[in-house]
Structure formats: C-alpha cells, structure tokens
Design a protein around this nucleic acid. Structure first.
Lengths: 203, 203
DNA sequence: GTCTATAAGACGATAGAC
DNA sequence: GTCTATCGTCTTATAGAC
C-alpha cells in the first residue's frame, strides 16, 4: 500500500517514512536554481548545496536530473491549465483583457513565477522544457480560445496574441530590460489588453 | 591598410600566414553550433569536430570559449545596427510596417538568422549574450525610434512593440510552434505591422 | 533516510613537439 | 599552422555503509 515506487512512475510518492521536509526542500531549491540558471547551467550538486543536503539524496528522491526538472516545474501546470475555463467564460469582446490579466497574474505571483521562469529559461535549449512550453502555450490556452472564434485565421491570431504576451514576459521577467522591467503592471496591461483583443477579434 | 581588426583587440586578425579558410570554417561551425544548442550546451570540442579541425586550433585562433562566441555573433551587428537609419527615414505613420519588414528580413535570411538564433538561444542563460541582446534590441532600435515620438510613454511603447516582434521570433524560429512556424511571412507581417504601428503611434 | 566513496566521463584550457 | 598529450576540474550517477 505504501509502495513508493509502484504505479506508472516511481517518483512523487512522499511516503510517511521520509524525513520531515527534505524532499520539499530539495524541490524548492531545484525550482529556484532552474529558474535562475536554466536547465544546462543548473547542477544536481548545486541544488543539493542550496537545499543543504547531500547530492546523493537528490538522486535518491527523484532519479535523474531530468526527473528533478520535471518535478520542479510540475506545479506550474495546475494553475495554467485551469485558465481556459476562467478565460473562456465571459463576453468575447473582453477576452483580451481577461487573458492579459490572467497571464500577468501568473507572472506577478512569485509562487507561480518561479516554475514559469524555469521553463522559459530552459525551453530554448532543452527539448523537454520546449515540449512543456508548447503544451502550456499552444495546446491549452490557444486552441480553446481559438475554438471560440469563428474566423479562418483563428489559430494564427491566437498565436500572435501569445507572441505578444510571451515576448513581454521574456523582456520583463527574464532579460529584465528597462523600462519594461520596472513598469507598473497596470500600465502594461492597459496597453496590452487592447492589442491582444485586436489579435483575437480585430479586423 | 589591411588591418581588418584595428588595434583595440587582439582577435579578428586573419594574417596572411594562416591556412586558407581554417579560421572561417571554425567560425562558421561555431555559429551553427551556438545557434542550434545555445552557449552552455555548445562545447569547443563539438565546434572543432563540426569544423573538422583539432580542438586546440579553436583556442589558438580565438582564445576562450566566450571569445569564440563573441566572434561568432559579431556578424549580426552590422546589419542590425544599420537599421535605425533605414527605419527612421520615412513617414511616421508607416514606421510600423518598415520596422516589421526589417525585422523579418533579418530573420528570413539564413545568413543573418544563424547568429541571431545563437544570441537568442543563449541570451536567457548567459550574461554576455544577454548584454548583446539588450544592446541589439533596446539601445539601438528602440531608443532611436522612441526619440522620434514625442509622447510621454515613448520608450515603453517602443519596448512593447519589440516584445511583439521578439515573441514572434521566439515562437516561430526558436520553439517552432505551429501554425506560426509554417505561416507565410507576408501573412504575419500583414497582421503585425498595424500592431507595431499602434504601439508606437496609437492612442 | 542519510551519507561516503567512487566510478566513468566531458569539459575548458595549456604546453610543447613538429 | 597544426596537432598530441595532458592537467585539473567539473559533471551525472551508482553502490553500499551506517
């Protein structure tokens, strides 16, 4: 019953025999490291040092480095995948604002920003992260929004809207380019919401 | 008279005693490797193998790995920095189209796309590449365009326009997300030019 | 559950032969 | 100008003691 390795995967089973919060400390440290340095520059040893544990423990709990990464970004899925319901409900002529606000809500919240940073910082060089990125952006957000538009270019429209938001996230949160990085979120949203709306339902 | 590199740096000096195109073969291979894998995943040994030369030769010609990277992306500067002149000249109400067309001209041309890919793929994890990225995007393109707008939010406007273009480049050329990756450039430009124009001169 | 010890290898960089 | 040989450091990952 408490077989930690049973089922489809052997990870993600915090059986009651493990020490207090060691697993969570590793996971938290891993998120921090991956979000700051990206996949390649992050080392298992670095994660272990940040968590104050032995490097062998990281492998003990999660397996390979890639499995550590998967576990670290897993928490980004729940909120992001819950999005389409929230955004889809409501009048179509304000969907741009709902989508933009939802997007910045994720990035302005430190708890969700960290795994997102880890994904974005790694997505350009790591195929696993790239796949996650596509799934997060394209499959979920866009297709369900595009499905509500009965225009021929619906998917392209949705993707260009996503390009605007993603580009803004890269410049503001990753590269930290000024003055965008220090601008008030509301000012950005005020400028971006109509643009996103225009992409989706404009001429 | 034939000093191509001048006196400030010791690199970039293809003295007539070196073998035919060895230096260029290394440089070309380096660009390819950096553009495909990013800075961290690219190794000096990998570059040497792709160029068909000994790894020691890479160091011999360029010094450290970082100096190889700088030499590899150097060619991206000339065309990109020549941009503001071209874009700045002309009526302000079509600057969006000129900027968008110039941007896609760079990315659709394989010769300029490769070093740009190397920069973008590395900019999120490598501080050198990030600095180049900022210089390319912010300092040159934006400030000179923003200088022509006499609006209070000029710089923020220009940066959000850049965010739209950069986001599009990331999704189309780096992540290769569909349908954007396979879309006809003219269709994308037709949708993006008005948006960029709106960012710069809109309400 | 936690740690020591170590395997097995890739990496950047250099010295020096030819 | 080109290559061989190598140093020293880092990495992921595992086996096994406690």
């Amino acid at each position: 019953m408490s077989d930690t390795a049973g089922g489809t995967r052997r990870r993600g089973r915090p059986s009651r025999t493990e020490s207090a919060g060691t697993r969570d400390r590793i996971l938290s440290a891993a998120r921090e490291e991956f979000s700051e340095r990206g996949y390649e520059k992050t080392s298992v040893r670095g994660i272990a040092k940040a968590a104050g544990v032995d490097p062998a423990l990281v492998h003990h709990y999660f397996g390979t480095k890639e499995q550590v990464f998967e576990a670290a970004i897993e928490v980004a899925f729940a909120p992001a995948l819950a999005a389409p319901e929230t955004i889809g409900d409501g009048p179509l002529d304000t969907v741009g604002e709902r989508l933009t606000r939802f997007f910045f809500g994720l990035w302005e919240n430190p708890a969700t920003r960290t795994p997102l940073l880890a994904i974005v910082r790694s997505a350009l060089n790591n195929e696993t992260a790239a796949a996650v990125f596509r799934r997060l952006i394209a499959a979920q957000l866009l297709r369900r929004i595009a499905a509500q538009l009965d225009l021929p270019d619906a998917e392209l429209r949705a993707e260009l809207a996503a390009a605007q938001l993603v580009g803004c996230a890269v410049l503001r949160y990753v590269i930290r380019a000024e003055p965008l990085a220090s601008a008030d979120p509301e000012r950005i949203i005020a400028r971006l919401a109509p643009v996103v709306q225009g992409h989706l339902t404009g001429p």
